[in-house]
């Protein structure tokens, strides 16, 4: 009993509550058919990639600008697997969990790439790290453009892997898979934030040298955070491009990283609820502007984002955390 009330007390805090509410809201919207499956899948994808990048950029402060490379790696490996490996195709046809099972393989490969690269690249600090990740993105992009067309010159023209109908799955399945992905990455964010590992990451963000001297294994922790982040980014990428019916070199476009960064900054860097709030706000802005101001929508979005970064760089959650509510310091309860 006591463990149940303990669990209840733990879950009734703002951050877990927000995660649960979000998951419930998506479930209700799905059951009541409030909007199209595609809309919901894309919305969840936005939150999932923001929360994925948050694991490295939010917690440690390392800006992984080429992070979209893991979207691309996840999406390409997934697409090629279901195209060429009969059991992978059969597995993804079983539904959402089947898709996740195949996507996990793609995510593990992306994570291995991240671990190998991270060991070398995370010695670099600040802008140099960001540039190194952009280099990684371009390197992988050119490898893809130089190899994929030769695997099957007739099908993969311009390195595009357009999935034939035998490899496609229902929108319901991709919805379920994205739902699981989003829930997993949000839960991971929360658990990391609450753990010793998370404390170490935040210490690295604050002062890396001091953290190392205080006993935080900085090199190991940064690599681990980068690897975890790549893993979930690839998972989300695999499901997202499957939902779109295929992948092209566009997946490596740095604009995807910009999307992720903008969402976390709007929400609040390094917080768990930040990517959720940022994802909702950004998606809503993006969608509204696209509908009402087509053509100039991205210009307006850019101006809004610029204003936010100028005047509220801490983001929504970061600002809320400064205040007290009914005698409770919000920074103690709002992660």
């Amino acid at each position: 009993m006591s463990s149940f009330s303990e669990l209840k007390a733990r879950l009734l805090k703002p951050t877990p509550l927000l995660i649960i509410l979000l998951i419930a809201a998506v479930a209700v919207a799905r059951l009541l058919n409030l909007t199209t499956l595609d809309t919901m899948t894309i919305f969840m994808y936005f939150i999932a990639i923001a929360a994925s990048l948050n694991l490295i950029m939010g917690f440690t402060g390392y800006v992984s600008f080429g992070h979209c490379v893991f979207l691309g790696i996840g999406a390409y490996i997934y697409a090629l697997m279901v195209y060429y490996v009969p059991w992978a195709n059969a597995l993804q046809k079983t539904g959402g969990l089947g898709i996740i099972a195949v996507a996990l393989i793609a995510a593990v490969i992306a994570a291995l790439v991240a671990a190998a690269v991270g060991l070398a690249v995370l010695r670099l600090r600040g802008a140099f790290f960001a540039i190194a990740t952009i280099g990684l993105d371009f390197a992988v992009l050119y490898i893809v453009m130089g190899t994929v067309p030769f695997i099957n010159p007739e099908q993969f023209y311009g390195a595009q892997v357009i999935l034939p109908s035998r490899c496609l799955v229902s929108k319901t399945s991709t919805f379920t898979a994205m739902f699981i992905t989003m829930a997993l990455v949000l839960a991971t964010n929360y658990l990391v934030r609450k753990s010793r590992f998370g404390m170490g990451l935040v210490a690295i963000n604050e002062d890396e040298d001091a953290a190392e001297v205080m006993g935080v294994p900085t090199a190991k922790y940064k690599t681990l955070a980068f690897t975890l982040s790549a893993f979930f980014t690839a998972l989300a990428g695999a499901v997202f491009y499957l939902n779109g019916g295929g992948v092209s070199p566009e997946a490596f476009d740095l604009a995807h990283t910009v999307d992720m960064i903008v969402m976390i900054v709007i929400g609040g860097l390094g917080t768990v609820s930040g990517p959720i709030v940022g994802g909702i706000v950004y998606y809503w802005l993006y969608d509204t502007l696209l509908v009402h101001y087509p053509g100039v929508n991205l210009i307006i979005l850019g101006i809004i984002v610029g204003l936010i970064i100028l005047f509220a760089p801490e983001g929504v959650v970061g600002i809320l955390r400064r205040y007290e509510f009914k005698g409770v310091k919000l920074r103690e309860v709002l992660e």
């Binding site: 010793r196 404390m199 170490g200 210490a203 953290a211 205080m214 006993g215 935080v216």
Partner: peptide, 10 residues
């Protein structure tokens, strides 16, 4: 929290 880092990683 600062002091906790000391405990957790000492």
């Amino acid at each position: 929290e600062n002091t906790m880092i000391g405990v957790l990683f000492g």
